[in-house]
């Protein structure tokens, strides 16, 4: 007990008058970024066979570390459960939360947090057997649908069928695994959860190729990083890390050609992005080549997407809403100027 009380008492005395320093200063002083990540979400945050963290959210944190330190490895991943993720951020256990967290109004307004740009537009979808030959969810009239109980998923499902005036029969289960098993064993015609989850659950089916994810999305699940309210300079770094990756994709700057682009590109947009023109890094409190370091470390947004969740991975997720705005998606970055 003594052991614990001494630092505790000292801490109380020290922190009584002193406000916390800005997150960026803390991070720089510590020499590494503490990133709250998910424990095991395929494609978003998960250690691989070698114990290396892999995923879209994980790469986002690497990108931030690259922007701040010029070294994508100066990041410590703190695996967080859905329950303790916000507490961990509020208590400064982590500097940024990149753990596919849905941005909702109540979270935005009541938790003392700010949500960053949406780095993955998710939404609730359906998976069905290919042989049913369905093109969209509206054709599911009269279907039995496997769903996990006590989730917003269940409520969205009810809303969707009611608003379309369709009949359906929900079959509810307490946990995700049981729901998938029931669908796999033919208990239901369809299974519903967030689309990104559908792709990873599909891998657990006996014959993944026999099943197809319908294109219909019935809810909005914007997933993105979160940071502590009131530290806007830090928030700017979170935001612009994502925007830099988007801008790079838009301009065709990739991990492979970034050095060459920095040297030879005449495009003023590229020059501003890569820091050869203007002093845009200064506004963030970072070196001018911040974006160059990001692209070198993790590539542009499209590259990160394809590497972690894209069609060539076992997950095989299409860009869909996450395509650039120029290609019919929602990913749109403000200009760097």
């Amino acid at each position: 007990m003594k052991f614990k009380l001494v630092p505790l008492a000292a801490g109380l005395v020290l922190s009584a008058g002193v406000a916390h320093a800005a997150t960026l200063d803390d991070v720089k002083a510590r020499g590494s970024l503490n990133c709250g990540s998910s424990v095991s979400l395929a494609g978003f945050g998960q250690p691989d066979d070698k114990g290396v963290w892999k995923g879209l959210d994980v790469d986002f944190c690497r990108a931030m570390a690259a922007a701040i330190f010029g070294d994508a490895n100066k990041v410590k991943f703190v695996p967080l459960s859905a329950k303790d993720r916000f507490t961990a951020l509020q208590s400064r256990e982590v500097d940024v939360l990149a753990r596919n967290t849905t941005w909702t109004m109540s979270r935005d307004t009541s938790l003392g947090l700010q949500f960053g740009p949406v780095n993955y537009y998710d939404g609730q979808g359906f998976i069905v057997r290919k042989k049913l030959n369905l093109a969209k969810a509206e054709e599911l009239a009269g279907a039995t649908v496997c769903v996990q109980t006590g989730t917003t998923t269940e409520l969205n499902l009810a809303d969707f069928f009611r608003s379309n005036n369709l009949k359906y029969e929900p079959v509810v289960f307490a946990d995700a695994d049981a729901t998938v098993k029931a669908y796999d064993s033919g208990r239901c015609d369809a299974f519903t959860t967030d689309a990104s989850g559908l792709y990873s659950e599909r891998l657990k089916l006996t014959n993944p190729a026999d099943h197809v994810v319908l294109p219909t999305i019935i809810s909005k699940e914007p997933l993105g990083p979160a940071w502590r309210q009131g530290d806007n300079p830090w928030g700017n770094i979170v935001k612009w890390t994502h925007y830099a990756m988007l801008t790079a994709e838009e301009l065709g700057v990739t991990q492979a050609n970034v050095d060459e682009m920095a040297k030879s590109s005449a495009n003023p947009d590229v020059k501003r992005l890569l820091g050869t023109e203007g002093k845009f890094g200064e506004g963030l409190g970072l070196p001018n080549d911040w974006a160059l370091k990001i692209i070198k470390a993790v590539g542009n947004y499209g590259e990160a997407f394809e590497r972690n969740v894209g069609e060539k991975t076992p997950l095989g997720i299409k860009r869909g809403l996450n395509a650039l705005w120029t290609k019919g998606g929602l990913q749109y970055a403000p200009p760097i100027r």
Partner: peptide, 21 residues
């Protein structure tokens, strides 16, 4: 958030490389 034995197993179950029924 400490990766003990059970957690390291759980975190690997959804790995796209190995996820099967």
């Amino acid at each position: 958030g400490i990766f003990d034995f059970l957690a390291s197993i759980q975190s690997s179950l959804t790995d796209p490389v190995w996820a099967t029924p």
